[in-house]
């Protein structure tokens, strides 16, 4: 009796879990399916998830109909450079706040926590104004500059560096290493998982960002993939397969990166919930 009840529970969980997974994956599966069939197959009645006709023309056509290579390059450069610079600045600042505290550093930390809660949208108008004055609207530097550091990143790295043992840096100090050496040769090699996690956080946030690139791109050529595809979908509502081919290409890099670093990433998120 008890055993069969347990088995029932297990089957129930499997069924529930799998149906959740399928429901969650539906739009992604549909993007894949719509990308590899002609538009006529999408509009044919009844709609199906499995393509009735296969084609890979969409992936070529999306480069002809849209400045897709430009969009891709813009997104890669924006997300890549912003992530790299932000990781550097966040790590240095987080390290200083955690490992090299001084009188007043708690005030700085408090300010960073306040900024953590600040909605980015409140800075939109002045940032746009600033970029216009610097003549950077529609350029890559204009897109990147506001993202070269983040309160979240600094706080995240501080929390990580706090968790490292103090003996380590004391050993370095006794050996007469400079603060930079201690950071570079002792602490930084230990922070790979944290850097990987924050890197993916940043990269996905910048790769996926909509409102800032939307504001900063005065033409389709200057947009990023999310902004460009949103603009295109707004104008050409009937080009389903073309839009979905572009979407699939836009989503793929992040999905691949995520699947590669999944374990580290998910574990780091789990620990942030612990405190």
């Amino acid at each position: 009796m008890r055993r069969s009840l347990r088995l029932l529970g297990k089957t129930g969980n499997t069924v529930l879990g799998l149906s959740c997974a399928l429901a969650v994956l539906l739009p992604i599966l549909w993007i894949v399916s719509a990308a590899v069939r002609p538009n006529s197959d999408i509009t044919a009645f009844p709609p199906t998830l499995i393509p009735r006709e296969l084609t890979f023309e969409n992936f070529i056509e999306v480069f002809e109909r849209l400045p897709f290579a430009r969009l891709y390059g813009n997104t890669l450069a924006f997300a890549g450079i912003a992530t790299a610079v932000s990781l550097t600045l966040d790590t240095l600042a987080g390290y200083a706040l955690a490992r090299l505290p001084f009188r007043g550093s708690n005030v700085i930390l408090g300010m960073i926590v306040v900024l953590l809660m600040l909605p980015f949208q409140v800075t939109l108008v002045p940032l746009y104004e600033l970029m216009q004055k610097l003549d950077l609207v529609g350029t890559l530097p204009g897109l990147i500059l506001p993202r070269i550091t983040s309160a979240f990143g600094i706080f995240f790295m501080r929390q990580f560096f706090l968790s490292l043992p103090a003996d380590l840096e004391d050993a370095g100090r006794i050996d007469g290493a400079s603060e930079w050496r201690i950071f570079r040769s002792l602490m930084l090699p230990l922070s790979r998982p944290a850097l990987l996690t924050l890197g993916l956080f940043h990269f996905q946030a910048y790769w996926n960002d909509l409102i800032w690139p939307l504001i900063m791109s005065n033409r389709l050529e200057n947009a990023t993939l999310p902004a460009g595809l949103a603009m295109f979908a707004g104008q050409a509502t009937i080009e389903y397969s073309l839009t979905m081919a572009g979407s699939l290409l836009a989503l793929t890099p992040l999905v691949v990166v995520f699947l590669l670093v999944q374990r580290t990433f998910v574990q780091s998120i789990a620990t942030t919930g612990g405190k």
Partner: peptide
């Protein structure tokens, strides 16, 4: 299932919203 459920978090909301 865990991977599938987590996947939307790293996808672009605006792009998947088109879908």
């Amino acid at each position: 299932v865990r991977t599938a459920v987590f996947l939307p978090y790293i996808t672009s909301l605006s792009i998947v919203a088109i879908a």
